Simulated scan of single mutants.
Amino acid sequence: MTVRDDIHGQIIAGLKGAKFPINTPEKLLAAFPAGADTTCRSGDLAVTAGEAGKLLTAADFPFKDAKQVADTIVDRAGL
């Protein structure tokens, strides 16, 4: 499994119980189990939801599902 696939899967898993659509960055962070402190790890890479959220813009919202969130974050992070 690649780092990209690993982080992508962890983001989707972290948003498993989230109610979509999610319309704001604040609601997205609140949807993660530990909020902005939720951490995805793969090998030596660790990224928090708060750090990943900085890659998003207002134009990215609303998100319709967890896959869309994960796709956007891993693409912007260059994973």
Score class of each variant (00 low, 15 high):
residue 1 M to G: 12
residue 2 T to S: 15
residue 4 R to M: 13
residue 7 I to G: 11
residue 8 H to N: 11
residue 9 G to W: 03
residue 9 G to L: 04
residue 10 Q to D: 05
residue 14 G to W: 01
residue 15 L to R: 07
residue 15 L to C: 07
residue 16 K to D: 13
residue 17 G to F: 00
residue 18 A to I: 08
residue 21 P to W: 08
residue 23 N to P: 04
residue 23 N to H: 14
residue 24 T to L: 09
residue 25 P to Y: 03
residue 25 P to N: 10
residue 25 P to S: 11
residue 29 L to H: 06
residue 29 L to S: 10
residue 29 L to M: 14
residue 32 F to Y: 13
residue 34 A to D: 15
residue 35 G to I: 08
residue 37 D to H: 06
residue 38 T to A: 08
residue 38 T to I: 04
residue 38 T to E: 09
residue 39 T to C: 08
residue 39 T to V: 13
residue 39 T to D: 02
residue 42 S to N: 03
residue 42 S to K: 01
residue 42 S to D: 00
residue 44 D to Q: 10
residue 45 L to G: 03
residue 46 A to L: 03
residue 47 V to E: 07
residue 47 V to M: 12
residue 47 V to S: 09
residue 48 T to D: 06
residue 50 G to I: 05
residue 51 E to G: 00
residue 52 A to V: 02
residue 55 L to D: 04
residue 56 L to T: 09
residue 56 L to P: 06
residue 56 L to V: 10
residue 57 T to V: 01
residue 57 T to S: 15
residue 58 A to Q: 09
residue 60 D to G: 11
residue 63 F to A: 10
residue 64 K to G: 06
residue 65 D to A: 07
residue 65 D to M: 02
residue 67 K to H: 14
residue 70 A to Q: 01
residue 73 I to S: 00
residue 73 I to V: 14
residue 77 A to G: 05
residue 78 G to P: 00
residue 78 G to I: 02
residue 79 L to N: 00
residue 79 L to C: 01
